[in-house]
Amino acid sequence: MRYVRFIFSLWLVLSVSACVGSYNQQHPTKDVGADVDPTDADGYGEPDADGDADGYGEPDADGDSTDSGGDAGGDADGGPTDSGGDAGGDADGYGEPDADGDATDSGGYGDAGSDADGGPTDSGGSPLDELWPEQSPDDMAVSLKANLRWKRGAILKNDLSQALGFAPDQSCKELELFDCFMAHNIPLGGSDPFGSGLYEPARSPQVTTPIAVERIIMQTCVRRALVDAVGPAVVFTELDLASPALDPTDLETLLAVDKQTRILYRRFLARNPTIAEKDLIRTLLLSDNGELVSATDFAVMSCFAIGSTTEFIFF
C-alpha cells in the first residue's frame, strides 16, 4: 500500500510539473509583477525558488488570458471576473463579491483597498500580496519579550465576524438563541458590571477560555459554511460546497483549495499563507482515516485550523 501511495505521489508530482512546464511555455508574457522568481508556478508571487516548492506544481490558476496588467502583485489568478485592474488593491482579487456583509466594508477606515478601483498595490505590488516567506526556525529572529496581548471577547467577536463576513451579533448563536460572546463572556475575558457586578475582567485567560474560544470559532465556521452553501457564498467562494468529496488528486480541486486557503489567511490573519501553511491545509483534504472529505467539512476544518491559531487569538 505504501508503494502504491509513493508511486501515485510521484506520478502526481511529475504530471503536474509537466502541466506547469507546458503552461509556462504557453504563457511567456505571464504577468509576474512582483514575482521574485519567474518560475513561480502558482502566481502568488512567493519566492518559489525551486520552481515549485510546494511540490504540486499547480499551473497558475485559471490560465486566464484576460488577466493582464492589473495584477501587479503577482496575482495572476484574477479569473473571469477579475477585470478592470483588480489588483492587489482589491485584496479579494479572486472576484468574490465585495458586498459580503463584511463589517469593515461599510464605511470603515481604509476602505480604499477593498474596492475595485485599481487599488493601492497596482503600482508594483505589495509584500503582503506575496506568499509570506518561509524561514527556518533555526535562523529566524524570535522575540523574547512576550509582548503579546490576549484578544478579549469584544475584539475577538469583531475580528471573527469580520473574518467570516457576519454582522457581529450574527456570527455565533448558542442554541440558535443567545449570542455566544454573551454566553461565554467571562471566560472570553469580559466583565459584567451591570449584571453580576463584576467590574473587572480576569487578568489572564482562564481554564475554560480555550474551550470557549474553540467552540465559538468552530461554530462560526460551521455557520459560515452552511450559509455559503445556500449561497451566494461570501467566504467559501472557491469551493463547491455541495460536493460530497474533494479529490486531492484533481488539479482544479487543489487550485480551488489553495485559493480558498489564501482567502482564509487574508481574512483571519491579514496576510497570505506561506507555502508550508498552504500545504498543511491541503492535508485536511483527507480525514484521519485517509478518506475523502466533503467540501463543507474541508471548509469548516480549514476555517477552524486558521481561525484558532495563536496568531489570530493574540496580537
Partner: peptide
Amino acid sequence: FRRVGAIFCGQSPTYEELIAFEEG
C-alpha cells in the same frame, strides 16, 4: 498598526487596510 486597530477601533485592520497602510 494592527494593535491600534484592535485596541482602539475594536477590530483588527483587514488585509486591504494593511495594504493601503504600506502602499508606496
